[in-house]
């Protein structure tokens, strides 16, 4: 099957500060693709680069065979890519319902209502909190809301940037479970940046190891998990 996303020889960064060096990757449809690596290795920058939030000096990015290199984020969003940043992924001052309405901002109102009730059926815990300000939600609920907001536009590819950061282990596991469900039930391709490399590699299909902005490993997630050196060296995995 043709890859849904192809990243080819990307150099990218912020202004004059280059973070990524010659990064390439291919993501198959309906895969969970995991990006791991030590702190500061450019994992989040890679996600942002795919979504058009950094400066690309060299290389190309194709989504469903179409060039998206250098496009602004809102155009990339229209092609069916959703990006969930680690923080600030919801409007804290708005109510849960207002957040969902904003996610459906560009949709005609009847379709918006339909989609909102769809995602509310999926994430029923939000139903009880519709009139509360999003800032009153717990960390896990916020991630759920953020997920719900991106689902409203029915994306084909979702980019998650450390969705479990700062969450209690039990909650983190639940969020990861929801992500797997998105793939299994809705057939959405997932790219996941995770701090907890072990958990991520266990649930992922393919994986990419970034160190210092360079690709150190690319292949099956399970292989990286069981790799004799790389795991201990960069990811703090115990044998």
């Amino acid at each position: 099957m043709a890859p849904i996303l192809e990243v080819d020889g990307i150099d990218a960064g912020y202004g004059k500060l280059q973070i990524l060096f010659n990064v390439s990757m291919e993501v198959e449809p309906k895969d969970i693709f995991v990006i791991v690596g030590p702190n500061g290795s450019g994992k989040s920058t890679l996600l942002k680069t795919i979504f058009g939030l950094t400066k690309i000096y060299k290389g190309s990015i194709k989504f469903e065979g179409e060039e998206i290199t250098g496009k602004p984020p809102h155009d990339i969003a229209k092609t069916g890519v959703a990006y969930l940043p680690q923080t600030d992924n919801i409007f804290a001052q708005l109510t849960v319902m207002e957040n969902l309405k904003m996610a459906a901002y560009t949709l005609p109102s009847d379709l918006a209502e339909e989609r909102i009730s769809e995602v509310l059926d999926r994430f029923s815990l939000l139903k009880a909190r519709l009139k509360d300000k999003a800032m009153t939600l717990s960390g896990g609920q916020r991630q759920i809301l953020a997920m719900a907001m991106s689902l409203i536009r029915k994306p084909k590819l979702m980019l998650f940037d450390e969705p479990t950061a700062a969450l209690a282990p039990k909650l983190a596991a639940e969020i990861l479970k929801e992500i797997i469900k998105l793939r299994d039930e809705l057939g959405i391709t997932i790219i996941l940046v995770e701090q907890n490399a072990k958990k991520a590699l266990q649930m992922g299909d393919k994986a990419l190891l970034l160190v210092g902005g360079r690709v150190m490993y690319r292949g099956q997630a399970r292989e990286l998990l069981e790799h004799p050196e790389l795991g201990t060296l960069y990811l703090g995995l115990k044998k």
Binding site: F51, H74, A77, Y83, F91, A103
Partner: peptide
């Protein structure tokens, strides 16, 4: 930034 990605 978020608003922009939502098409606002």
């Amino acid at each position: 930034q978020l608003a922009e990605t939502l098409g606002i």
